[in-house]
Amino acid sequence: MSMHHIGVDLGGTKVDITLSGAAIEKPLWRDRKPTVTDKGPGGLIAQLATMIQEARAKADGPTTVGLGLPGSIDPQSGEVRNCVMPWLDGTPLPALLSQAVGAPVAFINDAQAFALSEANFGAGRNARIVLGITIGTGVGGGWVIDGRVQAGRHGIAGEIGHIAVEMSGRECYCGRRGCLEQYLSGTALERRYYELTGRNTRLAVIAERAGSGDVVAASVLAEMVEAFGVGVGSLVNAFDPDVIVVGGGVSLLPILFDAGRTALARQAMAVPFKTPVVRAKLGDASGVFGAALIGRQSQA
């Protein structure tokens, strides 16, 4: 009897779930539901357990379960931390959910899930060291080496939004200063444009204006390119990945892959700089695929 794999991508607004056989990137079944956020951790655990049981019922045989979440699990305490849903922080989610489901559930941070799936099924396929970066409302990432996420001693490897690109720089909500996220995320870029113009403007519109003579918009994008170069170029100097895969809303801006790559090459010690910097391929499926894969790998 063949093993099936369940992947759950838990987000602040929706829960995405897939059931697959050996080919995780080709799900046999997929479902989405709005996240239950008004009933506390207990309500969410009940929702997740119900969705997982529904997937298991379709599997007709043994399953593994993996879950990606917008936060991480502290390896010491086993509790949720830094979650987009702050009311989940401090909850021993792995223990409670595994208990509710009656089977082990493997957990992974959503940015690490993105990197894992892109490395195995997407734009980083066949590369040995993959740096996956998501640039959207925040900045996150993950290191995948030989097809497996390297989460590190504290589980924080890939928290690239919080590497400093400017000493004593802009304040970050995390309590530190000069974090890359404050210079590169869509949120930060929109805030910067607002500071300079007094106008609330979406990033896509700022990018459009930069191309049609708006000098402030052009300067905001130039700052973004510089931050990308310094931040990601420094990571190249640390790990020298075989490929860099970029996803998230900001990755829709072509400037990241030309001017951004040039800025990155200036910071990297590799001359000539040959690392491909590529856009992610899997779209919003990367979360569930990475979750399903961590489930399979944790049972192997």
Rank of each mutant, 00 (worst) to 15 (best):
C83Y: 05
V80Y: 02
P86S: 11
A95M: 12
G102T: 15
I108T: 08
S98M: 15
I108W: 02
C83V: 09
G102S: 14
L96V: 04
V101R: 01
D89P: 15
S77L: 09
A95E: 13
C83I: 02
F107P: 06
F107T: 03
V80P: 04
P86I: 10
P86F: 02
V80M: 09
G90K: 04
N109M: 03
S98T: 11
F107G: 02
V101W: 13
V84S: 09
I108A: 05
G90F: 00
D89Q: 15
R81M: 14
G90R: 07
P104L: 06
A95N: 08
L97M: 13
V80F: 00
P86C: 15
G78S: 12
T91G: 04
R81G: 07
T91L: 01
I108G: 04
D110M: 07
P104R: 14
V101N: 10
S98L: 12
F107W: 01
S77N: 07
P92K: 14
P86K: 12
L88P: 01
W87D: 00
E79R: 07
V80L: 09
L93F: 02
A106I: 10
V105Y: 11
T91K: 06
L97W: 02
C83H: 13
S98K: 13
L96P: 03
G78K: 10
R81Q: 05
V80I: 07
W87L: 01
P92I: 06
P104K: 15
S98W: 14
A100D: 14
V84H: 13
F107A: 02
T91H: 11
P86E: 10
T91Y: 00
L96D: 09
Q76T: 08
S77I: 06
D110R: 09
A106C: 01
N109A: 12
D110G: 12
V80H: 03
G102D: 08
L96A: 07
S98R: 14
P94V: 13
Q99H: 15
V84P: 12
L97N: 09
V80R: 08
P92A: 01
P86L: 07
L97I: 09
F107V: 11
D89N: 15
P104D: 11
P92D: 11
D110W: 03
A95F: 04
N82L: 10
Q76R: 05
V101Q: 08
N109L: 02
P104N: 03
N82E: 01
P86W: 00
A103V: 06
L93A: 03
N82A: 11
R81H: 13
P104F: 09
